[in-house]
């Protein structure tokens, strides 16, 4: 018997082959459902909000508004995600701020997505022609209304494909959270492999599960892109 967190799974060192594969499925999928997927969804949603704010700050005419956004994006893009994760989880406690593994991962991944996605959103906003802003102004809109009603809806369409890629990357990146003890999908795989020593089988199994998740997501991505195509010539 092998004790995993709060759950009991019947995995022992003498198991192998198909039996091990089958018995490992449940703990890994449970890790995926309890941690990998929530971590991805929450970090992506929070990251997008952060990204939108950052992108709009970067488009501001005022340097005081722009600079913090520029520094944030540069710092996140210039440092490894793993290092960011370690700073939040292992670094902050030395300043007497201790955060549990899961929320630590949420914070690090949200900040990371926020920076990368803000670049995508900013580029999408800039890709909308100046004529669209002007047309909005000439029907009496203020800059904020023009942004909200005319520019962002078009920029969203432009940003969906690159943002979907960010999302799919994030699913895979969450495996790094295993290194700060979040018992997500890959951490479960490591724990099982540590007992059975069947690294090839277990890690291939983990890879297949990630692949399935990303494959399903890419189908959703295509469906969304198709829906958004309705007002553009193909």
């Amino acid at each position: 018997m092998f004790h995993l967190n709060d759950m009991l799974f019947t995995i022992t060192a003498d198991q192998g082959g198909w039996e091990l594969f089958k018995n490992s499925l449940l703990p890994m999928i449970t890790g995926g459902i309890k941690y990998t997927i929530p971590l991805t969804l929450i970090s992506f949603a929070a990251g997008l909000i952060l990204a939108l704010i950052t992108a709009i700050m970067r488009l501001s005419k005022s340097a005081i508004v722009r600079t913090p956004a520029v520094v944030y994006v540069s710092a996140i893009r210039g440092t490894p995600l793993l290092v960011q994760l370690f700073i939040v989880f292992y670094g902050l406690p030395s300043m007497n701020i201790t955060i549990d593994p899961f929320p630590s991962a949420i914070i690090a991944f949200s900040l990371n997505v926020g920076a990368y996605a803000s670049e995508i959103i900013r580029a999408s906003i800039l890709s909308i022609s100046k004529g669209q802003w002007e047309a909005a102004y000439t029907i009496g809109m203020t800059q904020n209304t023009a942004l909200k009603r005319i520019i962002l809806p078009q920029a969203t369409r432009v940003s969906i494909p690159p943002l979907s890629n960010t999302f799919i990357s994030l699913v895979k990146d969450t495996s790094l959270a295993s290194l700060i003890l979040v018992t997500e999908l890959f951490r479960r795989a490591q724990e099982i492999a540590a007992v059975t020593y069947d690294f090839m089988l277990i890690y291939i199994e983990a890879a297949i599960l990630y692949w399935i998740i990303c494959f399903l997501l890419s189908i959703v991505q295509q469906a969304i892109e198709k829906r958004l195509e309705r007002y553009t010539a193909t």
Binding site: Q132, E134, A135, I150, Q154
Partner: peptide, 14 residues
């Protein structure tokens, strides 16, 4: 005033 542009500038998503 209302403005009519050389390149129309209609809102493509509407």
């Amino acid at each position: 005033s209302g403005m009519v542009f050389q390149s129309y500038n209609l809102f493509p998503h509407k």
